[in-house]
Design a binder for these strands. Sequence first.
DNA 1: CCCATTTGCCTAATCCATTTAGGTAATCCC
DNA 2: GGGATTACCTAAATGGATTAGGCAAATGGG
Lengths: 192, 192
Amino acid sequence: MARAGLTVERVVVAGAELADQVGFEQVTVAAVARGFGVQTASLYSHVKSSHDLKTRIALYALEELADLVADALAGRAGRDALGAFADAYRDYAARHPGRYDATRLRLDAETAAASAGVRHAQMTRAILRGYDLIEPEQTHAVRMLGSVFHGYISLEAAGGFSHTAVDARQSWDWIIDSLDTLLRQSGARQTA
Amino acid sequence: MARAGLTVERVVVAGAELADQVGFEQVTVAAVARGFGVQTASLYSHVKSSHDLKTRIALYALEELADLVADALAGRAGRDALGAFADAYRDYAARHPGRYDATRLRLDAETAAASAGVRHAQMTRAILRGYDLIEPEQTHAVRMLGSVFHGYISLEAAGGFSHTAVDARQSWDWIIDSLDTLLRQSGARQTA
DNA sequence: CCCATTTGCCTAATCCATTTAGGTAATCCC
DNA sequence: GGGATTACCTAAATGGATTAGGCAAATGGG
């Protein structure tokens, strides 16, 4: 019988694509196997468990997103960098909702430490360098940016903004402008 | 054989408690039934499906949280109200992580419109009245507050802040102060 | 107080996802 | 070509979701 040519990578990529189509929570070992026209049990040669599969999808998405964000950030600083950073996240979530959901998977400490999540934190800090913040304010600001972006994107995805006439894009721009103003003031306050 | 005395309410409350203990995603019709010492199928007289059970838990948690927030808000305004509002959310998430997760469940439009989610939006707008914002800025601000709180709480729950020495409580207070400053400026800018 | 109705809970059965064990066949490499 | 590896399979156990159909306990009207 002809082989499907499975590898861990192909399984993970197929899982990521499936996540975008039907939602990350619906990604199942059985569903991915069906996509390959293969028995469910066959996938267990490539992933340890359903949880392992989801974790790998999360790590894959985290890498992919970090690459996109890094590209978007290249050569930018200040409000420009902040906007590019935010847009890269928002675009990714819009284009790949399932993968974005995957990046929100709770990873255990070691896995997280070895993931591209570290790069995300570094890039956030790199943006803040343009605002001359010092510790502990820099850490507060890192957390605030992460919170705003994650929170906004997940509320938008959940349809939380669809009941009002105001355009979501306008709110997004207003929020980024506000954050920029806020960070410039915090930096100025310190260096004064 | 003695009856367990099940009702929809008791089932939902048990589900909410179970969510706090083992996580909202792990709440299962079978698990709730075990808690009552009853057959799984018996619960289907009270809830239509697993999804129905989860939806009801979400609606219950949304009501409970709205009540707590309303209490916290009573007689406060400005930065005081903003802080109380934020703390009510954060405390609830800390005390009832499973229920808080439940409030993040994606509801369909009609269900959402009939839920306590509406009260949450109203209370957010009530806080902003203290800052003299007009539309569309008020809507932008509603979205920003929701984003920051949701985002922060979920990142904190996911352990995203545990790798740094800076205390999460300090960041929280700093963020609320920053939002207060930001909103006061936005209001002033408009009324000027 | 008793019978009829309601309703709370049960058994049985089906379907589907997860996971392990063990086998067979294609492929790789010397 | 043959031995090892690897890709995939079948079989089977476990457990959640869900439906159909039944009996017995609670309830309330006469």
